[in-house]
Amino acid sequence: MTETPFVTHRSLLFTVAYEILGSAADAEDVVQESWLRWADVDPSQVRDPRAYLVQVVTRQALNRLRSLSRSREEYVGEWLPEPLLTSPDVAEDVELAESVSIAMLTVLETLGPTERAVFVLREVFEVPYGEIAEAVGKSATAVRQIARRARQHVAARQPRVRVSRSEQQAVVERFLAALRTGRLQELVEVMAPDVVLIADGGGLAAAALAPVHGSELVAKVLARANRVDVAALEATAVWLNGAPAGRIEIDGELATAMSLVVENGHVTRVYLVRNPHKLTRLDESIALTR
């Protein structure tokens, strides 16, 4: 039996929505809404189903993002993207892995809704300007200008150094080992002196309400956050958003998803997601594609 175009492209559509929204729950809702719209369309009248579906998903994601902006402004503490458990295969596509990283999605949060959609469609999925213009309701000329501004904005804020998968894994393992043993000095040594920690508890779990700067202070915050019997704490390496990362359980319960930015053999950014509503998709791998 032949797959429908929607089923064929579902992983792509979810990835587009997730990159625009930074939330898997909202991305799933957008994909479902888009499926309902596709069900009302005569497929024989659609010249390019992939392009058509990407446009539909983009419009729905933009509507959702605009409606979410107020709730994100009122969010308790720092807002981080919802992490996803992914397979190591995602890392094979370096550009895709970089675009879905927690670090990049956090940078994309600083863009306006239209800028974010244009950047994602153009830079990640290489959608032609004319098709993006239809999706966001702008002229192709305006979209080119928006894309240029968004590129400059992101370039000024994203990590500049790409590291190999093996280096990322090695540093993540050292970091998790120091956490497991509670050795503060080892934690300090694996981090850059100017490391920054950003935590998201959403008012539902203990978390720093503002970014924490400096290896000594970050190490103390991490030690305090995980101050439990060492035997009760389990810190394991997992693949989150296309990169080696950490999963922390306390007494067998998932407490934190941890994403690390590594540069020159040291951790330069620590992202801790502790909001329980954002930890619900870490038991089953999710396919991301472009």
Rank of each mutant, 00 (worst) to 15 (best):
H9A: 07
G242F: 10
L279T: 04
E167V: 11
N241Y: 08
Y75F: 04
V118Y: 01
D26Y: 04
R144Y: 02
N264D: 01
D229E: 12
T114Y: 00
V221E: 02
R148P: 14
L282T: 11
V267K: 02
S44H: 12
A155E: 08
L84A: 12
E173W: 07
F14L: 06
G265K: 03
W35Q: 08
R144W: 04
Y75E: 07
Q152M: 14
A237L: 15
K138R: 09
D251Q: 13
S139H: 02
L288M: 05
F175Q: 09
V46E: 01
V195A: 05
L204W: 01
Y271V: 09
A97N: 06
R224H: 06
S139P: 00
E95Y: 07
P159Q: 00
E3K: 09
V196K: 00
D200Y: 15
I286S: 08
H213I: 08
G112F: 14
M1R: 12
N264C: 05
A39D: 15
V262Y: 12
A142E: 09
A147V: 05
D29H: 09
D40W: 07
T268E: 00
L209Y: 02
A97C: 04
A257N: 05
L282K: 15
G202L: 01
I20Y: 09
Y271A: 10
R157I: 00
N275S: 04
R37D: 12
P81T: 08
P81E: 05
V188T: 10
E186F: 00
A219M: 02
G137Y: 06
K220R: 12
L260K: 01
E73K: 12
V196L: 03
V107A: 10
Q145V: 03
D200R: 14
S11C: 09
Q158H: 02
G112W: 11
I102Y: 07
E234T: 15
T8V: 07
R59F: 05
I132T: 05
S23N: 07
R37V: 08
A17Q: 06
E98G: 15
S44Y: 14
V127Q: 12
T106L: 11
L111C: 11
Q55M: 03
Q45Y: 09
E78A: 11
L53E: 06
V120I: 06
T110C: 11
G137M: 03
S67Y: 10
E74P: 13
P81S: 08
F119D: 13
E249A: 10
V212E: 01
V221I: 08
L209D: 06
L209S: 02
S67D: 05
S44D: 14
E216T: 12
L105Y: 10
R50G: 05
N275W: 10
R116P: 01
V107T: 05
V90H: 13
F125R: 00
E167D: 11
N264P: 02
S139A: 03
L80V: 15
E19M: 14
D29R: 13
N275C: 01
V190A: 01
G242Y: 12
A133K: 03
E216H: 08
K138Q: 00
L68I: 14
E216L: 08
V46F: 07
T289C: 13
G137P: 00
K138M: 03
T289G: 15
A27V: 03
A199T: 08
R72Y: 15
G137S: 00
I286W: 13
L84S: 13
T58M: 03
G77N: 00
L68H: 15
A170V: 14
L53V: 06
V90T: 06
V218S: 02
N241K: 14
E78H: 10
A178V: 10
L222K: 01
D42I: 10
A245D: 06
